[in-house]
Design a protein around this nucleic acid. Sequence first.
DNA 1: CCGAATCCCCTCGGATACTG
DNA 2: CAGTATCCGAGGGGATTCGG
Lengths: 146, 146
Amino acid sequence: MVGARAVRKARTGVRRNVRTVPGPCAQWSDRDADFIREILDLVGDKWSVLIIGTLESGPTRYSDLTDAIPGISQRMLTLTLKQLRRNGLVTRTAYPEVPPRVEYALTDLGASLLSTVLALAAWSADHHTEIRRHQQRFDAGSEQDG
Amino acid sequence: MVGARAVRKARTGVRRNVRTVPGPCAQWSDRDADFIREILDLVGDKWSVLIIGTLESGPTRYSDLTDAIPGISQRMLTLTLKQLRRNGLVTRTAYPEVPPRVEYALTDLGASLLSTVLALAAWSADHHTEIRRHQQRFDAGSEQDG
DNA sequence: CCGAATCCCCTCGGATACTG
DNA sequence: CAGTATCCGAGGGGATTCGG
């Protein structure tokens, strides 16, 4: 009805054991919930997606990343890049020059994740207005009414 | 090459003004970055996706949600449900009975988001092993070596 | 130019107890 | 049953400073 089943059909391993009859049993298996947690660890933080998206256009220098992502601090750029490297989404290449030059690039794994995440961003762009409307309506109905 | 361009082509409004030549200018427009922020506000937290996913099988009572989502506290269930309602992803229906009965249900908007998010979960399930391998390799290379 | 280290605020979220 | 209110610890993340 929603499309979730299509996804479930296409990709084995996610929500395999969803129940079809009403009842008190758990909707999510522990493993499925773990997949949600894992993906949130990867892209749920404040900067990962922005960095990955910036790297899509090709290998990028540290300082260029700083410029491309407004508001990011050196600390968070370094930290997030390290996480992305740890998860195999990004590679780091240092060139022994003076001044030093370091380039970060997307791996195939990172690129495949980006394409998936962009669908989310597209959803957000699509429904942005509608969401705003809901928020304002909700807030208006909550404040007074006492 | 990665699929991001296909997404960009399919959905207007996201990453429209990506640059094609190297240079110091910003990779993300402020608006595009805002879409990322917005979607993270919606699903980037610890419980939203689990709740939305649980609701996919139909209207669900508060207590059934508690049972279906292991580890969630009453506080976070209530808080997250309120956020989901505020964004128009979930509706709340109270039945004037004793004992009280309250059912939460996905809106069409919430359902459309779920189907998109499940693609992410599927990606996680798909590449879980590979990611684990990268992590272990990275951690092994980091600890000693000094 | 690239990044590690330190300091510190502030939000997220868990535990518990209480209301209707 | 379906919440609300309060307390509190852990950690995300910004500003700044120092090293290679």
